[in-house]
Computed example of a mutant assay.
Amino acid sequence: MSWRRLQAVMVKELRQMRRDRITLAMIVAIPVMQLLLFGYAINTNLRDLTAGVADQANTAGSRALVMDIVATTVVTPTLAAETPQQLMEAMRRGEISIGIVIPPDFERRRVEGRERVQILVDGSDNAVQSAAAQLAQMPLDAGIRTTGPAAERAISVVAFYNPERRSAVNIVPGLIGVILTMTMVLFTGVAIVRERERGNMELLIATPVSSAELMIGKVLPYVAIGLIQTSVVLALGLWLFEVPLNGSVLHVYIAAMLLIVANLTLGLLISTRAQSQFQAMQMTFFIFLPSILLSGFMFPFAGMPRVVQWLAEVLPLTHFLRLIRGVMLRGASLWELWVDVLALVAFTAVMMTLAISRFRKRLD
């Protein structure tokens, strides 16, 4: 063992690392990002859940009851409905997470000590169910603060789409998006870099293939791979975990294709920036980590600060989770979830445009 030779190798490695600006940035950026995400962005205590209110009694007591519920900061009323059916339709479209129903005979029920408010919950998100259960146990004014058996009957919680609160029902649809995000971005992230490292770029330069043709040609084969992955996860989820499929199978595949294309174009943009396959893998990890943490797959979206929610809206996985859970669990159609469909289409268009504009058929 020679210390001089060992020192020479160490110096060489440090100098090479110094020239690799992306690696140097990742050394600092990854721990900082994890610290900020786990310390600031992720919060399991849900607040400001979108709620609809159907106050069929419309009395001073019922209005005071609604104000007491809002004062808990667990829910934020965004919809005024006349019937519980309207709340159910809004919940199916993903417009609200919780519905508050006050019956017409509210005052009589309050005097008799019977159940006088019903909370409808979107059970496709287990975290929302937990927040609703806590809300039902909170002491409220306006005739709700009682003791004994009457207190147990004051508020009833009705969970839809996953009343058994099975984790697989919530996780399996989201896993489709997580797997597609990880594999599709990585596959295309190394696509252009691999051409350079293998010496194939010289052949591409000599051909009349345009930048747009090359980029689109790189994307299309992986679309089929992504659909195969979707089929595997979907089939296993239905067979092994008995995850319901309440919506259209066609809409499930359309939503998956939107995410696949969005992730592939993001991977292409990464490949135009990375100088090696290792750099492409680093940048892919840098994208994948916030996607899985901020999209609502692992931690409740409603518990994040408003600024972080705005950042999460840029991630394709956030919109796909809303689509896939809406279609599979709530039986909604893509036309009812058109905002998230449009977001994925816009993301794809922007990423593809940037990738094509950054790519040049040259060796330097």
Rank of each mutant, 00 (worst) to 15 (best):
R165S: 11
E202R: 15
T188Y: 06
P149Y: 02
L236H: 07
I228W: 12
S248H: 03
L268V: 08
S295L: 00
R360C: 01
S248G: 09
A80L: 13
Q129V: 14
P221A: 07
L186E: 01
N263I: 08
M215P: 00
M26N: 01
M328H: 04
L220S: 09
A151F: 11
A8M: 06
A346H: 04
G247I: 02
G94V: 03
L334Y: 10
E115A: 14
D122A: 05
E242D: 15
V111F: 13
T348D: 03
T181A: 15
L14G: 02
A81K: 01
D125A: 14
P139Q: 06
E152W: 13
V158A: 14
L36P: 03
V233I: 15
I96R: 03
I216F: 11
Q129C: 13
S156N: 13
R360P: 02
L266M: 14
K218T: 07
G267V: 07
Q134L: 11
L79Q: 07
R47V: 09
M33E: 06
L317Y: 03
T207C: 11
D48V: 05
D141S: 15
T318M: 11
A131H: 11
E95C: 08
I27L: 15
P208L: 06
I287V: 15
T147G: 12
A151Q: 11
R196T: 01
A274K: 05
A355C: 10
L227T: 06
L363E: 05
E242T: 09
L140F: 13
M201C: 10
N58G: 11
R109W: 01
R322Q: 08
L24R: 13
D68K: 13
I27G: 05
G331A: 02
P290T: 04
V261L: 15
H319F: 11
L220W: 13
R165K: 13
A71F: 04
W335H: 07
R47N: 04
L227I: 10
A224Q: 10
A168V: 06
V308N: 08
R325A: 00
V243P: 00
T147K: 12
A71I: 01
F106L: 06
Q7L: 12
A151G: 05
V157R: 08
D141H: 14
V172E: 03
T83N: 08
R165T: 06
F286L: 12
I98K: 05
F301K: 10
A154I: 02
R198T: 10
T73V: 10
R15W: 06
L269Q: 08
A262R: 02
R47P: 00
E95H: 15
M215Q: 08
G113A: 08
R196P: 01
